[in-house]
Amino acid sequence: MSLISPACRDALQNWLASQSALKGAAENTLTAYRSDVGEFLSFMTLHFSSPQGLGALQKITIGDMRAWMAETRKAGTGARSLARKLSAVKSFYRWLADREGFEPSAVLMARAPKFQKKLPRPLAAEAAKAVLDTVELQSTTDWVAARDVAVVTLLYGCGLRISEALGLKGSDAPIADVLRITGKGGKERVVPVIRAARDAVDRYLTLCPYPQGAHSPLFYGVRGGALNPRLIQSVMARTRAQLGLPATATPHALRHSFATHLLEAGGDLRSIQELLGHASLSTTQAYTAVDTAHLMDVYNNAHPKA
């Protein structure tokens, strides 16, 4: 970032502020944007052998864009990550062009490399149940074991992101029939809570040695602070090792499993979109491919002519 001119640094900061204020971008998203666009601006400084002011940014050509993408790939960045970086740069340029009154076509015309879109990797229903049954064996401390079961049950039973589950406060307890969740981009959704999840949280609250104030975290770490998501990731790693599950059996895979199993049971895509808090139905449609793969397996295994 030290290579970037003050004018470009200010423009980047103002764009990030607009993403936060107008679009409700999450902090992790803003951090990624800052890194991606900052790297692009730093490259252009080196590419032209001088700091690039706002005027110089308006003159970037498609050849300059190709040079940046080639150098980024040469540094080991994969096609998917480069596509993400290019998307951030284009978003920044749309904002900058609107503000400064220039035509950003050279940047917007740059094409990301093609890549195979990864489908969600859900667990089979039996494997998901085995995870719920095995998580509590990863700790010899009763309240910690109950805590881990409660978190994992919320991920699978309600389709929560790990950040959403660990963002719950004492004011959310006791868990009601529905939870009001604020997800990515500040988007709010209402999620039904199955009895197994409510019971798991109730058991954890009974055993937890720390007080539950309205503004305190619902899930505590052993030292009394908010539970770190890495601890749940570690619990899942030990659980999948014990069960012989693949490395794709992560906390986030439980959210994918929630959606896929609902779809397999006849849930409609639009309702699942609402439950997951996806801004676009196209994001949820990835589960259609997963479900289709499941149906093809059933077909190939059961059809008399297969």
Rank of each mutant, 00 (worst) to 15 (best):
R230A: 15
P217F: 09
L254W: 04
C208E: 08
P251H: 08
S234K: 15
P251S: 02
S257N: 10
I232E: 03
G213W: 06
T260E: 01
Q233G: 15
R230W: 12
T250W: 04
A259R: 10
G213C: 10
Y210M: 07
P217A: 07
S257K: 10
L243N: 00
H215E: 11
P217I: 07
S257Y: 07
P209L: 07
Q212R: 15
V235C: 09
Q233L: 01
S257R: 13
A249H: 06
P251L: 02
S257A: 07
L231H: 15
H252M: 00
H256P: 09
V235I: 14
G224E: 04
G225E: 09
A237R: 15
Q242S: 14
F258D: 06
L254I: 01
Y210Q: 07
M236R: 08
Q233P: 01
Y210K: 11
L218E: 03
A247K: 12
G221E: 01
A247Q: 13
T250A: 03
L243Y: 04
H261T: 06
N228H: 13
R240W: 06
S234P: 03
A249D: 03
A259L: 01
L262Q: 05
G221Y: 12
Q242R: 15
T239K: 04
P229F: 06
G244N: 01
L218R: 12
A259Y: 05
P209D: 08
T248R: 00
N228G: 01
G225T: 11
P246T: 11
P209W: 11
G225A: 10
H256S: 09
G225Y: 10
A253W: 04
V222S: 14
A241C: 12
N228V: 09
H215L: 10
Q212G: 05
P217S: 08
C208L: 07
R238D: 13
S216T: 13
A259V: 02
P209H: 04
R255G: 06
M236Q: 06
L231C: 11
A241Q: 15
Q212C: 12
L218G: 08
P229Y: 05
